[in-house]
Every structure is written in C-alpha cells, then in structure tokens.
C-alpha cells in the first residue's frame, strides 16, 4: 500500500475516533473547562495528530493511548458528578474575592490575583468602582461573578412596581423561505393559518427570510428584500386605543346628559371600563 494512502486512511480513522470521544466527553464550552479537562483534550488531539502522520508507529498504540486519555478524565467526571468531595478536589472551589463590599486581600494573594486583574474583570462587568460591589466570587474556571450592591443593580419591573404580562418563548415558523411544521404544531396553528397571515401582510413565503410567532399568536417577519416595508401588527395597540376611546366617550356622555338615570349608567360603566383598562394594559403592550 502506498504510504500516502496509509496516511489518509489513518487520519480518517483517527478523526472518527476523536470525533466520538469528544462527543462523549460532553458539550462543555472551552471556557467552562478546568485546566485538567483542557489539557487532556489537547493530549487527545496531539496523539491523533502524531499517529496520523507518523506511520512507523503502530496504529493500535495510538488508539489505546487515546482511549486511556479519554477514559480517565471521563471516569473522574462521572465521579465528580456523584460526589461533592471529589468534585471540589477535581474542579476546585470558588474563592470569595469581595465580601460585604470589602476586598479579601488574603484570598487575592492565594489565587495570585493582582489588583489589576480584579479591576480588569470588574470593568468587564461594567463596574468601574469597587465600592459598587457587594460580593464577588472567583469561579473555579477563572471567571469572576459579581453581585453589585442593590442600588447599583439594573432597574427591573419588580423594583418599579410595574405589572408585566408573562412571556413565553416565540417560535420560529419560517426559515429561509420555508415553513417549519413542528413549531407551528407547538402553537396549535396550521399551515393554512400561516398562509392567511402572510396574505394579510401581502408577502409570498419565498420572500421571507425569518418568521416568528409570539405567545399571543402575532406573526413578525423579516424579508430578504430590506427595501420592502412590512406592515407591523397593530391589533393590540388598536384594541387598547379603542377601549380607551369608549371609556372617554362614556365619561363625556355622563357629563352631557341631564337624565339622572342615564348619568348613573354612563358613569358606572365608564368606571368598569377604567378597571378593565387597568387590568388588560400590561397584556396589550
């Protein structure tokens, strides 16, 4: 067998093995790996590389070495999943760097983390002033997690006391001009509904790059041709405006009429509508 064919065959075999081994090792991101996992991954790759080029080495040794380098980290990972002590030993523990707004200098030294490192990582979290931090933790994989003081946390609807409607994830129903049936079925909608909605917007499905349906069944689309303007769905805004108009009209009638009974009917109903507006507004925005 010519040497070059052997190199190709070896490479193909080793690529296949490497592919499955890395798949079995799990889908942890590179940034989430600890140094041991990182290095064993590199060693795996190097073994594969060496054995695919160096045809003097028997292939079986390479495969054996790869499986060993795969097996030990794999077993350790499984043990770590089951047992907290093993996990702390293998993956390391997190270190508190800032507590109650005070920097823990001893812990900084222990992790050989310089003040500049700390400031740099805080800046990455958009914090330029150490005094804004309540608590900061150095994770085992080297990332810094920061809890800002309460007054420096971003304002949420909860802080502002605003009622907001719950939200479900939108479903993507059109991709690259093609209808996706499964997400449609998840929303208990059918292709007919989609074609009707597209017809209402006056676009053909081939022109749609991406189409999503939100939890209230409103379709939003992006077209290939960015010059075309897509009509935005205004159903909900219109509804809210109409309710408000009715409420205002009733109030007006109540003021205009001289009949005591009518006045009472108008004003009580206007109050009812007012309450309805209050309840439904978060859902229609």
């Amino acid at each position: 067998m010519p040497l070059w064919i052997e190199v190709i065959l070896r490479s193909i075999l080793l690529i296949t093995i490497l592919f499955f081994l890395t798949k079995w090792l799990g889908k942890k991101q590179l940034s989430q790996m600890n140094s041991f996992e990182f290095i064993s991954g590199f060693v795996l790759a190097s073994i594969a590389a060496i054995h695919s080029i160096d045809i003097r080495l028997p292939l079986i040794y390479g495969i054996l070495a790869m499986f060993t380098w795969f097996f030990i980290p794999f077993v350790l990972k499984q043990l770590a999943l089951k047992n907290k002590t093993v996990r702390d030993f293998i993956q390391g523990k997190s270190t508190v760097l800032i507590q109650n707004g005070k920097i823990m200098e001893d812990n900084l030294k222990k992790e050989s983390y310089s003040t500049d490192d700390l400031l740099e990582n805080l800046r990455e979290k958009n914090i330029f002033h150490v005094a804004d931090v309540e608590f900061a933790l150095l994770e085992p994989f080297g990332r810094l997690s920061v809890l800002p003081k309460k007054e420096n946390q971003p304002l949420t609807a909860k802080h502002a006391g605003i009622t907001v409607a719950p939200m479900k994830e939108p479903q993507t129903v059109i991709m690259d001009g093609k209808m996706l049936l499964e997400p449609l079925a998840n929303l208990s909608l059918n292709p007919d509904w989609l074609s009707t909605e597209l017809e209402k917007m006056n676009v053909a499905i081939e022109n749609v790059f991406l189409g999503q349906v939100d939890h209230d069944g409103q379709l939003t689309i992006d077209l290939y041709d960015d010059q075309l303007v897509v009509p935005e769905s205004t159903e909900k805004e219109l509804l809210l405006a109409t309710i408000k108009k009715c409420q205002a009209d009733l109030e007006l009638f109540a003021l205009a009429t001289n009949n005591e009974h009518s006045k009472q009917v108008y004003s009580s109903n206007s109050k009812k509508l007012d309450k309805a507006i209050e309840v439904v507004t978060p859902y229609l925005k």
């Binding site: 409607a165 719950p166 939200m167 479900k168 929303l187 939890h215 209230d216 069944g217 309710i243 009812k272 509508l273 309450k275 309805a276 309840v279 439904v280 859902y283």
Partner: peptide, 18 residues
C-alpha cells in the same frame, strides 16, 4: 390565540366586563 393561561384568563375577564 394566546398560549399563556394567565393572559387567556385576563382577556376573558376583560371580555366579560366589556
């Protein structure tokens, strides 16, 4: 149309008032 039971309830409640 809505997928959310809470929103559904609010819509029905409002519809009742209307």
């Amino acid at each position: 149309k809505t997928q959310d039971s809470e929103a559904k309830q609010v819509y029905q409640q409002t519809s009742q008032i209307i």
